[in-house]
Structures are given as structure tokens and as C-alpha cells.
Amino acid sequence: MDQKLLIMNNMKRLGFSEYECKAYLKLLEDFPLNGYTLSKNSGIPRSRIYEVLKNLIDKQMVFEQAEEKNKLYYPVEPDVFIKKLKAHYEDVFSNISEYAGKLYREKKQDDRLVVIKGRQNIISFLNLLIKGAEKRIAMSVWEEEIQEITTELEKALNRGVGLRGIYFGENKPYETLTIHRRIKRYMEEKKERYMSIIIDRTHMLSGIVSRGEDSQVTWTRDEGLIEISEDYIAHDLIVNLYSASLDEKEYMAFEEFADTVHNHYFHYSDEEFAAYKKLI
């Protein structure tokens, strides 16, 4: 795209009309000009040029100076114009943010459950949530997924956001993540990859992410559901960190006990339990 056309499109996105863009950019190239000459050089109809110039004067992008019987128009220097525009929009955004935030905080508990479908949509939304993280991220996540959120995670860590959780993979990318015990056995046992990620105790994303476009997760801000997910991740951390602290004999006894609990919970048949025990 032509650079001038690109700049005009950017200016339009800031609320300037096409004629305002043309007039200001033409004045930057050649000034001072009277209205007639500017109309001729810019292609703006003579019937519109003075209306356009008045708008630019009101926006403090152009100023007018009378010389003898002629009115000449000068552009405000780009640096001055840009600084003023930035200050204006920062003020606008600040006011909107303050008022909208107040309205949002005054809302009752948000208990919506929003289903997000498609693995790429899920990853994109997760990166957006991580980008807004301020204090803490808790996660239970597999290697395949963490590879696609590393960039935003790194930025979050660099700005001081804490990270804790369980990692399903053999080489953990962050020291603050804990590899799930008996990871090879666990990965062979599970038929699906899932994630449970909590951002600042205000957002929770949880669901299956191993089905490509058929993957789906639930996003919620419901405090109760977030607390359940927090407890799940915290419990998993306790079990895995405790087992890692045991000596070999204690560890084998612990895993034998864990297998027994697993068997009773799922009510395996003898054949099913034997097959489970054979997993790596």
C-alpha cells in the first residue's frame, strides 16, 4: 500500500475525514496556501475547502493568518499536533476506563459460563487473558499448549506476575511449574489433553484442547468455580511436591497407596487394574 494512503487510512481511524487528511497533508508539503490554491492542489472541491479548513482550525491542526486581502493557511507542526492528539486520547481513555471500570465493579457476581470452541480460538483468547495478568497465573497445562503461550507468559513474568502450577511434559520450561509425578505413565494413561488456567483469581479457562477445531473450553469469572479450580491445582501441587520430597522407599510406598486409592475410586475390575499397573 502507498505510504500516503496508509497514513490517510490511519488518520481516518482517528476520526479525521478524507478531506481533512488531504488538506493537512497537502499543507505539510507546501505552505502557506490560500483556500483556492489548496483546493486546486489537493483535489478538494472549492465548495468544501473552507468548511474543511474551519474543522482543521477547530482541531488545532491548521492556523489562519491574514496577509493584505488574502487569508493564508499554515499547518501546525506534526510533532506538536501528535503530542496534542496523544494527550487528548489519553485523557479520553482515562475517563472512559475510570467510569466503565466503576460500572463493571458495581455489577453483581458474574456467573456466566462462556464456551469457546476451536483450539486456535482458545489459544488466542488465553494469550489475551495472560496479556492482562497483573499479579498471578495458576495453571495445569500440557507441553503442546504452553509452547503457544510462551511469548505472553515471558512478558507477564518480566512485569512481575507470579506463575505456579502443574506441567504435563518431561522438560519443564519454568522453574515455578511442577512436572506431574510418573509423567510417562500419566501421559500414556490419558487420552485427551486439557487445561485449567486461572488469571488473577478473576478469570478461569478450563476444558479439552486436544481435539483441534473440536476442542472446547469454558471461560468464567464465577468466584465459586474459580475457587474449585484453584483448589484442584493446589491439591495437585501438594501431592506432587510431597511425593518428590520422599526417599525411594517412602516414594514406592506412597505410589502403592495412590494406586490402591485410584483402584477403589474408579472401581476397576482385576483385569483393568492389572492393565493400569502395567502403564509406564
Rank of each mutant, 00 (worst) to 15 (best):
Met1Gln: 07
Met1Pro: 06
Asp2Pro: 01
Gly15Val: 11
Ser17Leu: 06
Lys26Ile: 07
Lys26Arg: 13
Leu27Val: 09
Leu27Trp: 03
Leu27Met: 08
Asp30Lys: 12
Asp30His: 11
Pro32Ala: 12
Asn41Met: 12
Arg48Val: 02
Arg48Leu: 06
Leu56Trp: 00
Ile57His: 01
Glu64Val: 06
Ala66Gly: 09
Ala66Val: 15
Lys71Gln: 11
Tyr74Val: 13
Val76Leu: 12
Lys86Asp: 02
His88Asn: 11
Glu90Trp: 04
Asp91Val: 05
Val92Gln: 11
Ala100Gln: 06
Leu103Gly: 04
Leu103Asp: 08
Tyr104Ala: 15
Arg105Trp: 00
Glu106Gly: 11
Glu106Tyr: 01
Glu106Ser: 15
Asp110Glu: 12
Asp111Thr: 14
Arg112His: 07
Leu113Lys: 12
Val115Trp: 01
Arg119Cys: 05
Arg119Val: 15
Asn121Lys: 07
Ser124Met: 09
Ser124Ala: 14
Phe125Val: 12
Lys131Glu: 14
Lys135Met: 05
Arg136Tyr: 06
Arg136Glu: 14
Arg136Phe: 01
Met139Asn: 03
Glu145Asp: 14
Glu145Phe: 04
Gln147Val: 07
Glu152Cys: 04
Leu153Ala: 02
Glu154Tyr: 05
Ala156Asp: 04
Ala156Cys: 10
Arg159Asp: 08
Val161Tyr: 03
Leu163Pro: 03
Arg164Ala: 06
Gly165Gln: 01
Ile166Trp: 00
Glu170Ala: 08
Pro173Ala: 04
Pro173Asp: 02
Tyr174Pro: 06
Glu175His: 02
Glu175Ser: 12
Ile179Gln: 06
Arg181Thr: 10
Arg185His: 07
Arg185Val: 03
Arg185Cys: 06
Lys190Leu: 07
Arg193Lys: 15
Tyr194Leu: 05
His203Arg: 14
Ile208Asp: 02
Ile208Ala: 00
Ile208Gln: 01
Arg211Ser: 12
Glu213Phe: 07
Asp214Asn: 15
Val217Tyr: 03
Thr218Gln: 03
Glu223Thr: 08
Ile226Lys: 01
Glu230Pro: 00
Asp231Ala: 12
Tyr232Gly: 02
Ile233Tyr: 01
Ile233Thr: 04
Asp236Val: 00
Ile238Glu: 10
Leu241Val: 12
Lys249Glu: 15
Tyr251Met: 08
Tyr251Thr: 04
Asp259His: 11
Thr260Gly: 09
His262Leu: 10
His264Glu: 13
Phe266Arg: 14
His267Leu: 09
Glu272Thr: 06
Glu272Ile: 08
Phe273Tyr: 14
Tyr276Trp: 05
Tyr276Met: 09
Lys277Phe: 02
Leu279Arg: 13
Ile280Leu: 10
